[in-house]
Amino acid sequence: MCRKSGRLTPLGIVSAKRSPLLPDVPSLVEDRIFDAPADFWMGLAGPPRMPATLVKQLSHALTKAVQSPEMKQFFQKTATEPAFTDPGSFEALWQSEQHRWAEVIRARHIRAE
Results as ranks from 00 to 15, higher is better:
Pro51Thr: 10
Pro51Ile: 11
Pro51Asp: 15
Pro51Phe: 04
Ala52Arg: 15
Ala52Phe: 11
Ala52Pro: 09
Ala52Ser: 15
Ala52Ile: 15
Ala52Asn: 13
Thr53Asp: 15
Thr53Gln: 14
Thr53Pro: 04
Thr53Gly: 09
Thr53Asn: 14
Thr53Arg: 15
Leu54Cys: 01
Leu54Phe: 08
Leu54Pro: 01
Leu54Arg: 13
Leu54Gln: 12
Val55Leu: 08
Val55Asn: 02
Val55Ser: 05
Val55Cys: 06
Val55Arg: 02
Val55Gln: 07
Lys56Trp: 01
Lys56Ala: 15
Lys56Phe: 02
Lys56Pro: 01
Lys56Ile: 00
Lys56Asp: 14
Lys56Val: 01
Gln57Phe: 05
Gln57Arg: 14
Gln57Ile: 02
Leu58Asp: 03
Leu58Ile: 14
Leu58Met: 15
Leu58Arg: 10
Ser59Arg: 02
Ser59Trp: 03
Ser59Ile: 05
Ser59Cys: 13
Ser59Lys: 04
Ser59Asp: 13
His60Asp: 15
His60Pro: 00
His60Ser: 14
His60Gln: 14
Ala61Val: 04
Ala61Ser: 12
Ala61Phe: 06
Ala61Gln: 12
Ala61Thr: 09
Ala61Pro: 00
Leu62Val: 10
Leu62Ile: 08
Leu62Pro: 00
Leu62Gly: 03
Leu62Glu: 03
Leu62Met: 10
Leu62Asp: 02
Leu62His: 02
Thr63Asp: 13
Thr63Tyr: 04
Thr63Trp: 06
Thr63Pro: 01
Thr63Leu: 09
Lys64Val: 06
Lys64Gln: 11
Lys64Trp: 01
Lys64Phe: 00
Lys64Cys: 05
Ala65Tyr: 07
Ala65Lys: 04
Ala65Gln: 08
Ala65Cys: 06
Ala65Val: 06
Ala65Arg: 06
Val66Trp: 05
Val66Thr: 09
Val66Cys: 06
Gln67His: 11
Gln67Gly: 07
Gln67Ile: 01
Ser68Phe: 07
Ser68Met: 11
Ser68Tyr: 07
Ser68Ala: 14
Ser68Cys: 11
Ser68Arg: 12
Pro69Asn: 08
Pro69Met: 06
Pro69Val: 09
Pro69Glu: 09
Pro69Lys: 07
Pro69Trp: 03
Glu70Leu: 03
Glu70Ile: 02
Glu70Ala: 08
Glu70Trp: 00
Met71Asp: 03
Met71Pro: 00
Met71Phe: 10
Met71Ile: 10
Met71Leu: 13
Lys72Trp: 03
Lys72Glu: 15
Lys72Thr: 12
Lys72Leu: 09
Gln73Glu: 04
Phe74Glu: 10
Phe74Thr: 15
Phe74Met: 15
Phe74His: 12
Phe74Gln: 14
Phe74Lys: 13
Phe75Ile: 02
Phe75Gln: 05
Phe75His: 06
Phe75Pro: 01
Phe75Ser: 12
Gln76Asp: 12
Gln76Pro: 00
Gln76Glu: 10
Gln76Gly: 09
Gln76Val: 01
Gln76Arg: 08
Lys77Val: 02
Lys77Trp: 01
Lys77Leu: 12
Lys77His: 09
Lys77Thr: 11
Lys77Phe: 01
Lys77Pro: 00
Thr78Leu: 06
Thr78Glu: 13
Thr78Gly: 04
Thr78Trp: 03
Thr78Phe: 01
Thr78Ser: 05
Thr78Asp: 00
Thr78Pro: 00
Ala79Gly: 03
Ala79Phe: 04
Ala79Glu: 08
Thr80Lys: 03
Thr80Asn: 10
Thr80Trp: 01
Thr80Arg: 05
Thr80Leu: 11
Glu81Gly: 04
Glu81Lys: 03
Glu81Leu: 13
Glu81Cys: 04
Glu81Val: 11
Glu81Ala: 10
Glu81His: 13
